Simulated assay, not measured.
Amino acid sequence: MMHFYKILFFLTMMLGTLMAISSYSWLSMWMGLEINLLSIIPLLGDSKNLYPAESALKYFITQSLASSILLLAIILSLNLKEFFLETFQFLSIIMNSALLTKMGAAPFHTWFPEVMEGLNWMMGLLMLTWQKIAPMILIFYNYQMSQFLLIIILISTIVSGILGLNQISLRKILAYSSINHISWMLASLLHSQMIWMIYFLIYSIITINLVIIFKIFHIFTLSQLFNSLNFSKSIKFSFLLNFFSLGGLPPFLGFFPKWLVINNLILNKFYFLSILLIVFTLITLYFYLRISFSSLMINFHESFLFPSKKLNFKIFLINFVSLSGLLACSLIFNYF
């Protein structure tokens, strides 16, 4: 049963995000971020989460610190009368650092997997998708292609790949996967906001598919994943293809936004950045494939004591749309 206070805070959380991305001044953007923060804290403190107080406190401290730094940069930029180029670059770095902390990009990422570990799947889905929108668009408003953001993109790909290798918690694996996708989204913002929108939409669809499967079967670790998938071959097949899609393998929908980003980078002569993104994303793809092959190839004993669970038709339809979407997108964009 959905409580009234949850509906209220959920709506104000969405209102805060929309206020931040549609404002004309930095101060009202900061106010939108604060409304979003104050609305999601009661939702994180819900008793259905694994560690509600710990997750809410970690999230609040990190976000309030980032908001304070952002407000400091905004006040300095408004009060400085002689706005030299060096000062502008310095304030831009401070502002972008605060926004990168809010979305959980490396090296400002250490709070993100820990907060994710203490949440249930629905709140984790909000953290992986909706909470990325406002900071990402505000970075686009202040996007100066500097060495700072290039370093952030590269660190995010490297850190997410290496730290995701030794994880057994699926929430942390999805958190590090999100950090990897943040680097691709930042790269997509170089010259085109439309590519970012396509990337974010497709990433959200794939993540929703995975989270729905995890929520239905109460899966939180790899051992639970391997045991639960043996109840139904169709569920195993659906899950594995979504994992391949999240990694960006070519026959699936997840390859399409990466294809667009690489194409855009090469057209704008960012050859070195595109090569490094591809190479370091292979580390992330490696642990996706390792999990998938383990669940496919290793022989687990199937239990006949429990009835086999089935996904309903709607979830299978969403999975089919997301997995066959690359063909549809290729045909549609071919005529533009």
Rank of each mutant, 00 (worst) to 15 (best):
M2P: 02
M2W: 11
F4H: 07
Y24T: 15
L27N: 12
M29L: 06
P42G: 07
L43E: 06
L43W: 12
S47G: 13
P52K: 01
A56Y: 03
F60P: 08
S64M: 12
S64N: 11
L65Y: 04
I69N: 02
L72S: 09
L78W: 10
F83T: 00
F84R: 13
F88C: 15
Q89R: 15
L91D: 08
I94H: 02
K102D: 01
A106M: 09
P107A: 12
P107L: 11
F112G: 01
L125Q: 05
L125R: 00
T129G: 08
M136D: 01
L138V: 12
S146N: 14
Q147I: 15
L154C: 04
L154F: 00
I155K: 10
T157D: 06
G161T: 01
Q167E: 12
S169G: 03
K172L: 11
K172S: 04
L174E: 00
S177K: 01
S183I: 01
M194S: 13
I195L: 06
W196R: 08
I205G: 03
I206Q: 07
T207C: 02
I208M: 06
K215D: 01
F217P: 04
T221E: 00
S223Q: 13
Q224V: 00
F226P: 03
N227S: 14
N230I: 07
N230T: 15
I235H: 00
L241Q: 02
F244R: 07
G248T: 10
P250E: 10
P250R: 14
L253R: 00
F255T: 11
I262W: 08
N263K: 14
L265W: 01
I266W: 07
L267Q: 15
I275N: 05
I275K: 12
F287V: 03
F287Y: 10
R290W: 04
S294V: 06
S303R: 10
F304L: 12
L305W: 15
P307R: 05
S308R: 14
F313W: 11
N319F: 04
N319I: 09
N319E: 08
S322D: 03
L323Q: 11
S324D: 06
S324W: 05
A328M: 14
L331F: 12
F333A: 13
F336T: 13
